[in-house]
Amino acid sequence: MIYLQIFSGASNMVEGVDRSFMVIFSISLFFLMGITATMIYFIVRYRKTRNPKATQIDGSNTLEIIWTVVPLILVMVMFFYGYRGYVIMREVPEDAMNIKVNGYMWDWDFEYENGKVSKDLYLPINKPVKLNLYSLDVIHSLYIPAFRVKEDAVPGKENYMWFTAQLEGEYEVLCAEYCGLRHSYMEAKAVVIPQEKFDTWLADYHPELNKDPRGLEILKANACTGCHSLDGSKLVGPSFKGIFGIQRIVLVAGKEKTVTVDEDYLLKSIKEPNAEVVKDYPANVMQSYSKVLTNEDMGEIVTYIKTLK
């Protein structure tokens, strides 16, 4: 039980969830043990060799009523605890700090009220925080096991969760809704720090210095960087780093062909990603972006990729 970190108090939601769990668990364990023991006792006590003649009993209305009403009352108790632990999760305090969360294949972005965007979720201790959940592509689900919170980020919809982090430390942030190839790698950290430290961290933000080039903004907004790295590491698709101008072997309808990665090839790969797939990379993972991006946007992307030497 210690290993399960029951009642750790890492967030204000832990108590309600864990109490509800313990209520259900205790009642369930009692019935599981009781019924199993009774069954085994009957099997041993009334085995054929010891009780050669069965006594015929058709039933008992009293018993039927008892074992209908008692479970009914118990499940209502369970429902009540579950409801009580849950209802606070939807009632956000007015002074909660807002953080915008963007989920995309396969990463999280946390955007703070001053515009600072972080890959990890920095949280001031003992301060209610509201996460406004958005998705750029498919459904994701923000899950922080230690905080006992989980809520889906649904494309085209707004969803939210809130909590107050109560223990300093680092906690895993995971994706709980299956979202494709790198679903299990869609992780981040929740870092709970004192308010002063958090304020310093938040203020360390220089939008005029860190402004992304337009092409990179478009790449990020369309979750391209989930599969195509900017630093040369191999993800699902080829990295953008140093790709412009080099020669690559691609597969066209199963046959190998050498192409030079030029503007035409890059544009074609955005519009018809499966026509000429670089060798050793999977086909049919990427969809056409010809309806999603304007020609101008595509041009910006190509311009940006040229700069990645």
Binding site: M13, V17, G82, Y86, P145
Partner: peptide
């Protein structure tokens, strides 16, 4: 799983 609070987890 049927209980709201525990299912969230």
């Amino acid at each position: 799983l049927g209980s709201l609070a525990t299912d969230v987890h």
